[in-house]
Design a protein around this nucleic acid. Structure first.
Lengths: 253, 253
DNA sequence: ACAGAATAGATTTTCGAAAGAAAGTGGTTT
DNA sequence: AAACCACTTTCTTTCGAAAATCTATTCTGT
C-alpha cells in the first residue's frame, strides 16, 4: 500500500464510479466488499474478523473497516463482543429459520401490497425478470459438468432480481430494505448448498414454482401468490436444514 | 475534558456499570446517549449532527461518535450523505405511516405467536406491566397542571414495557428487535405531541384500549387482539398526522 | 500436581492530527 | 444583475500511533 490518501480509488478489477453510483468514501467501499465476501462465504461462519487481517486483505485502515463492521453488525451479518472485536455471524438452524420466517412475513406483505398497487410497469418488470432468470437457469442446467462460478453468480443475481420485481411496488421503503437484508442473511445459508454437492431435492421443480408465483401475482390472486411464495421459501429452508444436519453428522466422524 | 483515556467512566448523573450491564466501550455509550437524545427530540429533525458539536456535547472523540452514528443510520434515526456527514432523520407523514404500518405488521405477528406459545409467566408479565402502566397513567392524570418530565418519562417507560410484554414470547429475536427499532422511530413522532399542548382526541380512552388488548391476548383470541393492537397504533398515528398538518399550517403564517 | 498470581503478547479501542471535499466569500466579467 | 472563477473557511474522513483490555503462558507457593 502506498502512502496515498483518502477516498476510494477503483482497485484492480472493480468498476470505476459511474454517474449514479456513489461509492465516494472508503468506509462505503469497505462495507460493500465485506458484505459481498461474508455472504459469499469467503469467511467461515463464526470466524473472528481481526482488524489486522482485514487491513491487509482490503488495504483500508482501521476507521473505515470499523464503520463497515458496525453497519454489518446492525444487519446481523457480523456479531460484536464488547472488547473482543467482531466475528462473522455463526450458523444455526434456529437463526436460519428465524430469518426465513421473518422474510416470509415481510415479502408476503410486500407482495400483497404490490399486487394491489402494481401497474403495467410492475407486470412487465416481473415478466422480464422471470424470462432472464429462466434463460440462465436453462443455460446452467444444460452445462454438462460443474457450472462455472460466473454462471452461478449470474443465476443468483437474476434470482434476486425476480424476487425483487415481485415486491417492487409495495410502496414501503422499510419493507424493501428489510427484504434485501433478509435475502442476504438467508443467502449465506443457501450458497454452500449450491456450490457444494449437496443433495438437491429431485422432486422439486424450482422454475415451475417461480412461474406459478408469477402467474398468481399477475392474475392478482394475492392469497394464492403469497401462499406459493411462502411455500417456496420454506421448501428451500427445509432442504438447507437437512443438509446442515447431514454435514454435522459427517463432521462427527 | 482532562487527558484521561479510554473506556466509559460513569459521568455525572449516570449509573455506574453494574454486573449484568455492559456499557464497556465509549462507542457503545455514545450510541445509547445519542439514541436517547434523538428519540427525545433534543436535536431537531433534519438537523445536521456536526462532529465538533457532538464532541463538545458528549466529550467523546471522533471514532466512537462515528461508530454510534453508523449504527443509528442503520436504524433510520439518522441519515448520512456521502461526504456531507450525518443529520437527524427528517420528519414526514409518509415516513411516519411507513414506520407505523411496518410496526403493525411486525408486532401483530409477534403477538399472534406469543398468544400461541405464551405460558403463565407471559400472562403474569402482561398483567404486571398493565397494572404498573395503569397506576402511572392515573397518577399523571391526577396531577392538576403540567405533569413533570419525570412523570411523563416514567409513563413512557411503562407504556413500552406493556407492549414489550405482549410480544415477549414470540420466539423470534428478529421480530423483537424490529419492534424495538420501530418503537423508537414512531416514538420520535409521538413525544412532541405529548409534551406540547397538541389537541388530544377527547373521544379516546387509551387505558381502555390497553385493557381490551390485554384481555383479548390473555383469552387467546388472536384475531381480536391483533385487530385491537393495529387499531390502537393507527389511531395514534392519525392523531399525530393531524397535529403535523396543524403545525405546518401554523408555521405558514 | 494444582490453584493463583504475575508477566508477556496479541488485539481492540481511542485519540489527535492531517488530508481531502464541500460550502461560503468576494471579486471580476459579461 | 447574473454567471463564473479563485480563494478561504468549515467540515468530514482517514490515518497511524498510543492506551486500554483481553488471552495465553510462565512462575510461585501450597
Amino acid at each position: 500500500m502506498s502512502g496515498r490518501r483518502n477516498v476510494a480509488q477503483p482497485m484492480a478489477g472493480e468498476t470505476p464510479p459511474r454517474a449514479g453510483d456513489e461509492p465516494a468514501t472508503l468506509a462505503e467501499t469497505a462495507y460493500r466488499r465485506l458484505h459481498r465476501d461474508i455472504v459469499a462465504g469467503v469467511f467461515a461462519p463464526g470466524q473472528p474478523l481481526r482488524l489486522e487481517l482485514l487491513k491487509q486483505r482490503y488495504g483500508f485502515s482501521f476507521s473505515p473497516l470499523r464503520e463497515a463492521l458496525n453497519r454489518l453488525q446492525a444487519e446481523r451479518l457480523v456479531v460484536a463482543a464488547a472488547l473482543r472485536g467482531f466475528s462473522v455471524a455463526p450458523f444455526s438452524a434456529e437463526e436460519m429459520w428465524d430469518a426465513t420466517e421473518t422474510r416470509i412475513l415481510v415479502e408476503c406483505e410486500a407482495l400483497r401490497r404490490s399486487i394491489e398497487h402494481g401497474d403495467d410497469d410492475w407486470e412487465a418488470g416481473i415478466v422480464a425478470a422471470f424470462h432472464a432468470l429462466d434463460l440462465q437457469a436453462r443455460r446452467v442446467k444444460a452445462i454438462a459438468g460443474e457450472p462455472g462460478d460466473d454462471d452461478l453468480s449470474a443465476l443468483e443475481v437474476r434470482h434476486q432480481d425476480f424476487h425483487r420485481a415481485l415486491i417492487a411496488k409495495c410502496r414501503s421503503r422499510r419493507l424493501l430494505d428489510l427484504a434485501e437484508q433478509l435475502y442476504a442473511e438467508t443467502q449465506r445459508y443457501r450458497l454452500p448448498m449450491l456450490t457444494g454437492r449437496a443433495f438437491a431435492d429431485e422432486a422439486r421443480d424450482v422454475p415451475l414454482e417461480h412461474r406459478q408465483i408469477m402467474d398468481a401475482a399477475l392474475a392478482r390472486r394475492a392469497d394464492e401468490a403469497t401462499a406459493l411464495l411462502a411455500a417456496h421459501y420454506r421448501r428451500t429452508s427445509t432442504l438447507i436444514e437437512r443438509n446442515m444436519a447431514a454435514q454435522e453428522a459427517a463432521a462427527a466422524d
